[in-house]
Simulated scan of single mutants.
Amino acid sequence: MTHHQELRVDIRTPVGRSLPELAAFARRAEQAGLSGIGVPDHHHTGRDAYLALAAMAQATERLSLYPATSNVTTRHPLVMAALLNSLDELGPGRPMLTVAPGFLSVEKAGKPQARRDHLREVVLTLRGLMRDGHADFEGHRLELFNRPASGAGKVVVLASGPRLLELAGEVADGVMMLVGLHPDGVEAARAHVRIGAERAGRDPAELEEILIVPFGLGDPGTVRAWPQGWFREGQPWLRYPSVSNLRWLRASGIDVPDDVEPGDVDDALADRILDAYGLFGTAEECADRLLRARKELGLQRAFLFPAHSWDTTYDLPEAEVEAFGEVIGPRLAESS
């Protein structure tokens, strides 16, 4: 049997239940064989992502735990650094930070998304605080008295567009990217990460790569409803969270214009989009697609992003975790 490097699979888990319930859910995810959990950092829910992660750290033994994702507008880098170190004290070596310009959190706070130059400065500041215990930020010297042990405390940039991918390559410890699973689309995105890394004199191979993998269980009619539907009024699902989704589909040979409307997507096009974009279908079909991605892309870490609309944003992915535990995880283990 051919042996493959272990594929780590994490899952998005929103703050849609009380913190004790979220901790219990994390325990079930760990028992199902998942490797990690990313929690959206949505203040407007009335639940703090880092407190949820702390509760999860105490309820589990090995899960990687991180915000997915924190914005750099409503959280100061010194605050995020202190939160990361605190999480590391509860689950040593398990937490990391993922940061981005912001989407729902900044929208709900009435703030604009962060500019790229600000994101760059924050990432460099966070890495300095994690590595050295100090960094200069906006003309002020910041200090962090306690920090994770050597090797912990990674700072990862979530990116979907080419300029953010280049920024991740330039300044971050890793990149978390939503670019689909088609080899041509992924290679086009990786090229931008390499450009950023080489611009900064860095080795792109040293960056951790996490592919965000949309995940929808169901029969053909059920899963086609995603590319043929809306995330929320005025925003087709195909343009959530970013219109950059369509760039990588085009790089994969699927010509979808930026102004695509759900009614423009017939069943044949929907099927092509779903195959290029993520895991869709029965649990068995999703397992096959993930194994194919490992073979075609050398995929080492996936972040499952359960398909949802605005109305279901905060539903826990119970069915997806069950499918992973019963079918997908065992299939991955068999093929290792």
Rank of each mutant, 00 (worst) to 15 (best):
H44N: 04
S64W: 07
A55V: 01
L51W: 05
R47Y: 13
E61N: 11
R47L: 15
E61T: 14
L53Q: 06
L63K: 05
G38Q: 06
L53G: 04
D48S: 01
A29Q: 11
S35L: 03
E30C: 09
E61R: 14
H44T: 02
A55S: 08
L53M: 14
A49N: 04
D41V: 08
G38K: 04
H43K: 13
A29D: 10
E30S: 03
L63N: 09
A32D: 12
A54D: 11
A54Y: 03
A59R: 09
A57H: 06
R62G: 13
H44E: 06
E61D: 15
H43P: 09
A57G: 09
G38C: 04
A32L: 07
R62M: 04
R47E: 14
Y50C: 04
L53I: 03
R28G: 04
D48E: 04
Y50W: 15
L51E: 11
R47G: 11
A32Y: 10
T60P: 14
R28E: 15
T45I: 00
G46K: 00
Q31A: 15
R62Y: 05
R47W: 12
P40E: 12
A29E: 12
T45Y: 00
S64P: 01
G38F: 08
L53F: 03
I37T: 07
A55N: 01
G33M: 07
G38D: 02
G38I: 03
P40T: 08
H43N: 09
I37D: 06
L63P: 07
A49I: 02
H44P: 01
R47I: 15
G46D: 01
S35F: 13
G36A: 06
R62E: 13
T45F: 00
L63M: 06
R47C: 08
L63W: 04
H42L: 15
D48H: 01
G33N: 12
A54M: 10
H43C: 02
Y50H: 15
P40L: 12
H43E: 13
E30A: 02
A57P: 06
D48Q: 01
A49M: 03
S64T: 13
E30I: 01
G38S: 04
T45W: 00
Y50F: 15
A59H: 02
R28D: 15
H42A: 07
R62I: 03
T45E: 00
L53V: 05
H43D: 13
D41G: 11
A52D: 03
A55W: 03
L51T: 12
L34D: 08
H44V: 09
R62D: 13
A52K: 01
S64I: 06
G33V: 07
E61C: 05
A59Q: 11
V39I: 15
D48M: 00
V39S: 09
R28Y: 03
P40K: 08
S64C: 06
D48V: 00
G36W: 04
H43W: 13
L34G: 07
A55Q: 03
H42I: 07
T45R: 00
D41C: 10
G36I: 08
H44Y: 15
A55G: 12
Q31R: 14
R28N: 09
D41A: 14
